[in-house]
């Protein structure tokens, strides 16, 4: 029978905290940048202009249909060779994860926008609003409500995807725990603690979002 000893992890607490900080910081950056790319991708794919639509579609499918691990390695190793763009592991992984997340956010945002009844935009137009005003004042506020569960879901996946940046030696929680596991010869305790740490952050977040959704639903 395996003798669990979580006490030993206490001596690595600064390493874990450090890694956790990188993971959380990374998530904030890639979720925000990803939402920006997602917004661009969604509006691009809904554009009146064919060239914009095709560009957005190419971006979405390129990043949605290839594995994130391959993208990470490609951004770090292949881009410098092909395009002469040198990137630090942090920049390369932030960019890859943002674009990857952005491709999924694009589809969520586009789906939310087209799900709003045409009559809503017509009512806006009939009042004399420009298409931009109709989008901002009428369509998006309703669409965002519908997007929130899916956006939250994708952001949870993004949070967990940050664990992949350890392959580029970015010192996130997983990378630091590898260090701790090698040093302590206690991989079971280490990775159990890491799993608990991820869940401990995500579960409260999901509860907050669920409550928020209920409050938003009141006005429907």
């Amino acid at each position: 029978m395996y003798q669990w000893d979580f006490g030993i992890l206490w001596s690595y607490r600064w390493l874990f905290l450090n890694g956790l900080g990188v993971t959380v910081g990374f998530t904030v950056v890639i979720v925000l940048c990803g939402l920006l790319f997602g917004l661009l991708g969604a509006f691009g794919s809904l554009s009146r202009f064919r060239a914009l639509r095709l560009t957005a579609l190419a971006f979405i499918e390129a990043f949605r249909c290839t594995p994130i691990l391959v993208q990470l390695i490609w951004f770090y190793y292949a881009l410098p060779i092909l395009a002469g763009v040198e990137m630090t592991p942090i920049t390369a992984s932030a960019l890859a994860l943002s674009l990857y997340g952005g491709s999924f956010y694009s589809e969520i945002i586009r789906g939310g926008i087209v799900s709003i009844d045409r009559g809503q935009s017509e009512a806006g137009a009939a009042l004399g609003m420009t298409p931009g005003q109709t989008m901002r004042r009428i369509v998006l506020p309703q669409a965002i409500k519908r997007m929130i569960p899916a956006l939250m879901n994708q952001s949870i996946i993004q949070f967990k995807n940050t664990s992949l940046v350890s392959v580029l030696a970015v010192p996130d929680l997983v990378y630091q725990s590898q260090v701790a596991a090698h040093d302590s010869y206690r991989p079971l305790e280490t990775y159990t603690a890491v799993a608990v740490a991820y869940a401990a952050i995500l579960i409260p977040l999901t509860i907050i979002v669920r409550r928020g959704e209920k409050r938003l639903a009141v006005s429907e």
């Binding site: 009844d117 809503q120 009512a123 137009a125 009939a126 004399g128 009428i138 309703q142 006005s219």
Partner: peptide
């Protein structure tokens, strides 16, 4: 187009009220 439409009012078969706004906000929106 927008400036022109602002001078005509339209009422639709399916109302097309803005569900995320109160009645007052709907009327204030224009």
């Amino acid at each position: 187009l927008a400036r022109f439409r602002a001078t005509t009012g339209m009422v639709f078969q399916h109302f097309n009220l803005f569900p995320h706004m109160t009645t007052l906000q709907n009327v204030m929106e224009g």
